[in-house]
């Protein structure tokens, strides 16, 4: 009988499938890669072949250029592809646009590498699909019982209330360029905010791409200054979305008395917010929180739970209490801060 770790195993380059001779989300260039989603630590340039959803392939092309891989293999959700006798099927993960879990079937066993995922509704991508399996490979970014993300709408209301309260100041919302930024913009639209939202130059391409895939983002404009004189006031009372790194940068100086907001699951912990000088923390994450992680394991009831990047200790302990066989994979190269 084929052992489970003969079908998928951790290696320094990423999760490897020996019978299929492919890697899932490899962190270094390989001949054949299956990519779960477009975040830079999962989707890297320079592979021989990339199997991913159409959206993920488009995201990689937008970020790395059209020649990011030699051969593209767009796969529709739910449709299997055979790679050297191993069946690979992508099913939705609910993380960002195009994100998928990789279902790997071989010798009567089913293993699911879920990549990054969340369970709550996200208006910019397809929701997580539960599928039974022998091995469920989960992330553990927020795998501590202190991480319980509140309702998105409450966080968006906090932002809108602050905008009303400080009409003379610009609200700078730090959000990762892929996924989080578009989700916030979309959530603001759902909350009835129809004014122009200003975006950092680094986000333009990805916002255009989301629009092209049917995610309506409403009126957006670059956060650039039209004229030198009195330019700062252009942004009074406005919402500006940019990558978090830009807020430490000279770029942020163009805004009047900015209110520093940061949209991240880490914002749950006050010390994190204070360290970053965040005035308005928005607890919005594209990763599963503690309850979502544990609910998912209970929903799927895998024979084994394999845990990748994050706080694997706590999830391993929880699995032990639940009587679920669990093992940390200690994969390297995935960014903890990426949320």
């Amino acid at each position: 009988m084929t052992r489970l770790d003969e079908i998928l195993r951790p290696t320094p380059k990423g999760l490897y499938c020996p019978p299929g001779d492919f890697f899932i989300d490899p962190v270094r260039p390989v001949d054949r890669a299956v990519v779960t989603h477009g975040h830079a630590d999962h989707a890297r340039a320079g592979h021989g072949a990339v199997l991913a959803t159409e959206e993920t392939i488009a995201i990689m092309a937008a970020r790395y250029g059209e020649d990011f891989t030699t051969s593209r293999q767009p796969a529709a959700l739910g449709v299997s592809t055979a790679i050297n006798g191993v069946e690979v099927t992508l099913i939705p993960a609910g993380h960002v646009l195009g994100s998928a879990q990789a279902v790997v079937e071989y010798a009567g066993k089913r293993l699911i590498a879920s990549g990054d995922y969340k369970r709550r509704r996200d208006p910019t991508c397809v929701g997580f699909e539960v599928m039974s399996c022998d091995v469920f490979i989960t992330e553990a970014t927020f795998a501590l019982p202190v991480f319980r993300h509140p309702d998105d709408r409450g966080e968006i209301d906090k932002l809108l209330a602050s905008v009303r309260r400080f009409p003379e100041r610009a609200h700078l919302v730090g959000a990762y360029a892929l996924g989080k930024a578009q989700r916030i913009i979309r959530l603001l639209r759902e909350a009835g905010y129809d004014e122009t939202i200003y975006i950092h130059g680094a986000m333009q391409k990805l916002c255009d791409l989301y629009e092209a895939f049917g995610v309506a983002l409403g009126p957006l404009a670059p956060a650039t200054i039209a004229s030198k004189a009195g330019a700062k006031n252009d942004f009074a009372g406005k919402i500006v979305v940019g990558p978090p790194s830009a807020f430490a940068d000279k770029w942020a100086r163009r805004f009047p008395e900015p209110v520093a907001c940061f949209a991240s699951g880490w914002m749950r912990v006050r010390a994190r917010a204070r360290q970053r000088g965040v005035e308005l923390p928005l607890i919005l994450s594209d990763h599963a929180d503690w309850d979502e992680l544990t609910d998912t394991v209970r929903d799927i009831q895998p024979q084994e739970l394999w845990i990748t990047h994050g706080r694997e200790d706590a999830l391993t302990r929880w699995a032990e209490l639940e009587g679920v066989k669990a093992r940390p994979l200690s994969l390297v190269g995935y960014e903890d801060e990426h949320d």
């Binding site: 019982p145 202190v146 006050r270």
Partner: peptide
């Protein structure tokens, strides 16, 4: 209310007793 080991891991991460309890 909860498993000691899970609480202790949480406290190690957060570093403030009141905040850890409030969140967990």
């Amino acid at each position: 209310r909860m498993d000691e080991a899970l609480f202790d891991l949480s406290y190690d991460y957060v570093g403030d007793l009141a905040e850890t309890i409030s969140l967990a």
